[in-house]
Design a protein around this nucleic acid. Structure first.
Lengths: 249, 249
DNA sequence: CGGGGTATTGACGCGCGTCAAACGCCGTGG
DNA sequence: CCACGGCGTTTGACGCGCGTCAATACCCCG
């Protein structure tokens, strides 16, 4: 059990924020940003730390600034399913709800930009820029969750692994406003167990399939947590759907 | 292949609408309702008809008034996964997006209250009552999708079947502002194949597990499309999670 | 060098998918 | 009235993919 002390990071101005253009605040004007500045504070967590326990009260919502976290559900007998990945610019928490429905765990070191709940909800009710962006992001998350349903319901273990790598590569590329292509490297800030929980597999199966993909030259491993994809299009084919990821241009 | 002509139903006033209190329009005031009245029209579909094809343009969004529809995704080799069920009061379509990402199929006869896209989006931008309710509903759908991830990733075939029946029973009871308890009957407007697509199973497995639950007295079948649950709590136990469904009171 | 957490690898079995046949229900037409 | 065909469903036989259990390897840190 890791110690669960989070420490305060130093405050940072919104106009130099790396996720400014994609986060919940993306559409806000200067006066709204000023409001947000007044209710925000940073928090950091180490890999493995629990950020929120399912069932606990939450007095904040937050944007992920850097790092990665997972939302997790459990059955009483302990079976675990990760139901969402939080990557930089993703939003954590639900306005209007105090009790967290899922446990949130940092899978890598992570920095959150937290907003005190009450003032945030107040601003949300005032600002169409804020609420509109939140709606947009929520609809995107819903689409992502539905893509995940297809993966969990119908894909083989190998296709699941390939799909996860494709998604991480797309998200990483999107931060640089690009699309992955040809040779591409991805950080994989997840243990085999976390991958298994996300993919609805066991960690043994994850390990076997990763090594199978490696043997066949579809991926290369640099250490355990970094993957080089020599031919991105080949990986997409392994993932089962060769849709283009839905992005225009 | 069923013929795909939808017919216009006669207009109906909002103040006698059966889903008035739960649909997107739930929080609207009389003047906003008047606006909505001006942009709305009813459409009906028979069981099996396709309402929207994935990839096609949609010039409307809609509320389900009665009946049931399924959102469906496919891999190129034909594997199919249902990624959402639309029940009365649920919302269909995404404001700001013209192209449908999923195929929508009526699983029973269904009546939609459609709104022309452009005027609806215009009103959405003006009315916090409308956009707030849509956000709320989208967040609820996201929660439902995440519960479904747990089901698809970690539950056994038997638990999946039981979970589906539990959900349908809860939704049916919720329309009457109740909670299912003790002896309870559910309509099951789905073929075995549609159930399989929703649960990530084959239709043979669905059939076998349904009959297993029947043999053991957990459910009773009245015809193929109506299920009597003699003891709702027992069914919940079979479903794997005995959470109370999250509703207060 | 030892210890704990993470990952790999192997042997084995079971749940569910696959393939195939038969059944029940219903509408149609002889 | 019954024969016929179509569709959804049931049931059976069989096999494979992935889960389970267990041993071993790896790696970082003291």
């Amino acid at each position: 059990m890791p110690h669960d002390l989070a420490f305060q990071s130093s405050q940072q101005a919104c106009d130099v924020c790396p996720i400014r253009s994609r986060a919940v605040c993306a559409h806000c004007e200067t006066d709204e940003l000023a409001d947000l500045e007044g209710m925000k504070y940073y928090r950091s967590f180490e890999a493995g730390q629990v950020i929120v326990w399912a069932g606990d009260g939450m007095d904040f919502v937050a944007s992920v600034v850097s790092g990665m976290a997972g939302l997790t559900q459990q059955l009483e007998d302990g079976r675990t399913q990760m139901v969402g990945l939080l990557l930089p610019s993703d939003f954590l928490g639900r306005p209007g709800r105090q009790i967290a429905p899922y446990t949130v765990t940092a899978t890598s070191e992570i920095v959150l930009c937290c907003f005190r709940r009450k003032p945030f909800e107040h601003l949300l009710a005032q600002s169409p820029h804020l609420s509109g962006r939140l709606l947009e992001m929520t609809l995107d998350e819903l689409d992502a969750a539905r893509d995940w349903l297809l993966l969990l319901g119908r894909k083989s273990a190998r296709e699941k692994i390939a799909s996860l790598l494709v998604i991480l590569a797309r998200r990483e590329a999107a931060l640089a406003r690009q699309r992955p292509k040809g040779r591409f490297a991805v950080e994989l800030p997840l243990t085999r167990e976390a991958m298994a929980d996300y993919l609805g597999l066991t960690l043994e199966t994850v390990s076997r399939q990763m090594n199978a993909l490696k043997r066949e030259g579809v991926i290369e491993l640099e250490g355990k947590r970094r993957v080089v994809i020599p031919d991105f299009e080949a990986l997409v084919i392994e993932s089962g759907d060769d849709s283009d990821g839905g992005l225009p241009s």
